[in-house]
Write a protein that binds this DNA or RNA. Structure first.
Lengths: 208, 208
DNA sequence: AAGATACTCGAACGAACGTTCGAACGCATG
DNA sequence: CATGCGTTCGAACGTTCGTTCGAGTATCTT
């Protein structure tokens, strides 16, 4: 509907960014709990300890809240992945690194993952495209790592589906992982998922 | 909020069930498109070619629409799985059968899958528990199949996580599978996913 | 002290929501 | 024809929604 001021910032003051980040964290919590449509600005205000109208000093509206959460999530995923991969050249180790980075990141930001998974198609037009670009960049980065696992002519289409399945494994865990109750650490889980995918993927390549 | 008449049915007439099923199909389409909270009864009425108030002759309200869709989806999943597994004894073939059944079922009812994935936690109290029971029954059935793949003392906890990851792979495909555009048939995809999981899972068991 | 600027908020707006109600309709059975 | 029942619907109800507006407070510059 409304055009988002994607990156325009005019008036600020020291502490503005911090308070806005606090608002985004609180919003992600509410969005994760009841979904974008189910969340009311009044509840977000309560969670962020602001008044209802106070929110509109930091963002233009509900839509921008969702946009900022999703964009920031995928953007920092790409950034942290690039940083983690520096100096790692072994293909298997690169995959393990990517999975570890993914699980760690979402383990520490479960609310944001949930928002990105559930309400991916809620944004429209420019905002959707901006998020889509970051999301696509992240997918491509992981897809390339998967492709380099089997250098001998494997079709891109094949490794694309394998990557999609890998992401399914990684992203679904917010549906079953209970942060407080589970006995598995994030890194242990990442190692298990890496092994599961790696052996399955490479075994399949051999037989095909 | 309101107590659902979970299975009570009083007044009917020939054709009642068919029309109600038609309503549920239309509702699933709308829910899948814009989510439970984003869907309005007015849009559901338009999609089902009924008047707004006409809906309330077939269901008690919006909440029951979601309940009926989710319950029916998991219930028919359990039923069709049991039917498909009859006479299949080889553990690997049983897993392949389960995956094929899952992908086929959701390939043909993508809307319902989306509703079950996105709005699983929307229902409350009795309705939630009723759906949860069917969902748990389905998970347990697949979990048992996975457990039988590696009979030598593998911890239940281990195979539980593997099963969760398998479901992640299987359920995530609604996020990327474009029914019209994709070149992969449901059965081909199921075969790929079976191989990916099977080899990865069994290879891991050997090394542990 | 004076004034500008960033920030906060209570109150209210119009719109859209889920649901209800009573009047109509179609169509059997007496 | 009349009675009853399953079915359909337009109109309206009360509530909640996202957003706006103007007044008020805090903080800093000059």
């Amino acid at each position: 509907m409304t055009v988002l001021t994607l990156h325009a910032e005019q008036k600020r003051s020291p502490g503005f960014d911090d308070k806005r980040l606090h608002l985004l964290k609180a919003t992600a919590k509410v969005f994760a709990d009841v979904g974008y449509d189910g969340a009311s600005m009044r509840r977000i205000a309560a969670e962020a300890e602001l008044s209802l109208s106070g929110i509109y000093h930091y963002v233009s509206g509900k839509e921008e809240l969702l946009y900022l959460i999703q964009y920031h999530t995928f953007d920092s995923l790409v950034t942290s992945l690039e940083r983690c991969l520096e100096g790692v050249s072994d293909p298997r180790e690169r995959l393990a690194t990517a999975v570890r980075n993914h699980i760690r990141h979402f383990g520490e930001n479960m609310h944001e993952l949930k928002v990105c998974a559930r309400d991916l198609e809620t944004l429209e037009d420019e905002a959707y495209e901006a998020v889509r670009e970051r999301r696509h960049a992240y997918f491509q980065a992981v897809h390339q790592i998967v492709g380099e696992l089997a250098p001998q002519g494997v079709s891109t289409h094949h490794s694309w589906i394998a990557t999609a399945n890998l992401f399914g494994m990684l992203n679904w865990f917010y549906q079953w992982y209970d942060a407080g109750r589970s006995k598995v650490s994030f890194d242990d889980l990442a190692a298990e998922q890496t092994a599961l995918f790696l052996d399955g993927y490479l075994a399949k390549e051999k037989t095909s």
